[in-house]
Design a protein around this nucleic acid. Structure first.
Lengths: 160, 160
DNA sequence: TATACAACATTGTATATGCAATTAATAAAT
DNA sequence: ATTTATTAATTGCATATACAATGTTGTATA
């Protein structure tokens, strides 16, 4: 079994990279970026015991109660992932669920008083982080990044 | 507790979005893109029982054995995450670890014959996926996306 | 109406992720 | 040489992620 090593897939190991090398793998790139950005947002919200994923959920419930499947669609996450995501939030008393009287299959999630208060505390921290990221990377850079990431989602979720 | 709902944080719930709305949250954007891209790559590698994260690990071991901490740095993942990532790969016999004789703290990971063969089978599938993504999004688009994602990583890992 | 089908939700299983704490081994300092 | 600090690795804990399978409820159909 002779190995055709794929040098383009890994950095030169003679120069072990403290400096991040430009991987050719799109998946690696976007996951890496997601990790560091998530770390930023999570760190900013940590004083409230909140994570950015949970913050997203709260943000989508501010207006009114939302059926769980619709909520998962809004958040663009797997339906089963939402169930797990919601679990600690229910335990913390930030969110409650109520059954739809007319269709007992449907459950709606809604904010509690505690959840709303927490969200209001979190918004400024979220905003600060948004601003910090924008300051570091530049307004135009971030806008273009957003556009491209949205395009990635739209294109790949539509494509076969 | 009167609520100042933050309309910019959630889509209009009167128009429940099957169409993905453009969230203003950079973190949400990049995580969403990471989810769909990861799904693509995982699906492509699934016939081999391999995930894209595992493929990345294999790719970094093709040249020669790598100490685990250095491997985690190459992969830009938390050191403890690497331990968990490696676990099923060790169990599957794709990778082994060996202690450094001169420094017994250090463990090196290296490919097995099986792991190398698997990697060689996986490379074409990875390449196909790369090409498919490029075809869908456009070569220039992907190149610019890569550049920006690398910049995100470099900038935010350096910034305070 | 009995049956098939579709929609909603959860649970089992498995990996992904990272912080805090722990253990072990080496290096540095007194 | 003993103490101290550093480095390498793992484990505990908690959340993030999604596929497959299951149970429940509503709808459509024969």
């Amino acid at each position: 079994m002779t190995a055709p090593p794929s040098p383009e897939l890994s950095p030169d190991p003679q120069t072990p990279p403290p400096a991040p090398y430009a991987s050719p793998c799109t998946c690696f790139q976007v996951r890496r970026a997601a990790r560091i950005i998530t770390g930023r947002y999570d760190a900013a919200l940590a004083p409230l015991g909140l994570r950015i994923t949970q913050f997203s959920v709260l943000a989508h419930l501010v207006q009114q109660p939302v059926p769980l499947t619709a909520l998962a669609e809004m958040l663009v996450m797997d339906r089963t992932t939402l169930t797990r995501t919601l679990k600690p939030m229910l335990a913390a008393g930030w969110v409650t669920t109520e059954a739809d009287p007319t269709d007992r299959r449907i459950k709606r999630a809604q904010l509690t008083e505690t959840g709303l208060a927490l969200f209001e505390q979190a918004v400024p921290l979220w905003r600060d982080t948004q601003r910090a990221v924008k300051d570091h990377l530049g307004r135009d850079f971030v806008r273009d990044l957003h556009d491209r990431l949205t395009t990635v989602w739209e294109t790949l979720s539509a494509a076969p």
